[in-house]
């Protein structure tokens, strides 16, 4: 069967090259150019990168995004883990609860953003204020929205991980006199590290790449203060005549950053994984 390998790989490989590798190389190339349409570009060297790095709004968006990622990483994973623990106990209706918690994940980010915008503004209106007036309202609004959306998804991954832990290990720990708390930290969590690696990787990259929710919930108001990196790149690309290349340069920087952070995070959690 081995000699058919090229044949089977071919379609996917073609799609991968056309859909990812080529646009990626083109994108990197364009970040060194000034252009209006992508097929008609003029080489300008590093000037796009210089403009991108001089942009104070871009730097602000980096810190804002980084803070958002850390907070959402903690909130999402702690709650998702707790829910997964609760829903793997032997109690009635766990499947219904799992379904309900998972459902928000099936709704698109743009729609969610608008719905939550109505909810938050409805509440804030009672206090004569609104989301667009304070960057921290936007920040916590995004945290709530993203948690609501992603906790269910992470929960499913954690449930799968929990179910894979052999019962005899926990039983042995119990017979040896370990308390519930000790069993959680000394047995369950170490055994769950592969799931934790995946979930934290997903929440970190999702946090950095967050776009549609940001666009529809706050659109960067007030005055770009709640603009995250992906939205900043998008706005740079379309906001000014002749700045397409700068947006492209920012996107390349953004890619490098996400890769570095992703790799560091994987290393950190991988090293804690134990052999079962």
């Amino acid at each position: 069967m081995k000699r058919y390998m090229p044949l089977f790989v071919l379609p996917t490989l073609c799609a991968f090259i056309l859909g990812f590798i080529l646009p990626f190389i083109m994108g990197v190339g364009l970040s060194f150019c000034k252009f209006t349409t992508v097929t008609d570009a003029k080489f300008v060297g590093f000037s796009n990168y210089i403009k991108a790095l001089q942009d104070t709004v871009f730097r602000h968006s980096f810190w804002y995004t980084a803070l958002f990622t850390v907070v959402s990483l903690l909130v999402i994973n702690v709650i998702a883990f707790a829910l997964a623990m609760a829903l793997t106990q032997k109690m009635r209706g766990t499947n219904i609860f799992r379904t309900i918690f998972f459902m928000p994940n099936l709704i698109g980010g743009i729609v969610l953003g608008y719905i939550w915008q109505l909810i938050f503004n409805g509440i804030l209106a009672k206090y004569s204020t609104a989301l667009a007036l304070n960057e921290w309202y936007g920040f916590w609004g995004l945290i709530i929205l993203v948690s609501w959306q992603q906790i269910g998804y992470m929960m499913i991954i954690y449930i799968a991980g929990l179910q894979a832990i052999p019962g005899d290990v926990l039983e042995a720990a119990q017979i040896d006199g370990a308390t519930g708390w000790q069993r959680l930290w000394k047995v369950t969590v170490p055994m769950m590290m592969p799931s934790i690696t995946i979930c934290s990787f997903l929440s970190v990259t999702n946090g950095f790449k967050l776009f549609d929710q940001n666009l529809s919930l706050t659109a960067g108001e007030p005055g770009k203060m709640s603009e995250m990196m992906a939205l900043n790149i998008y706005n740079t690309f379309y906001g000014r005549t002749g700045w397409e290349g700068v947006g492209q340069a920012k996107a390349v920087l953004f890619f490098i950053l996400v890769v570095i952070i992703g790799v560091l995070q994987l290393r950190a959690t991988r090293s804690k994984e134990v052999q079962q």
Partner: peptide, 19 residues
């Protein structure tokens, strides 16, 4: 008007002023 960015900047400032 020089760019979309300019319009957005004025718009945000007007919103903040209205509040």
């Amino acid at each position: 008007m020089p760019s979309e960015e300019w319009k957005n900047g004025v718009g945000s400032a007007l919103t903040a002023y209205a509040a």
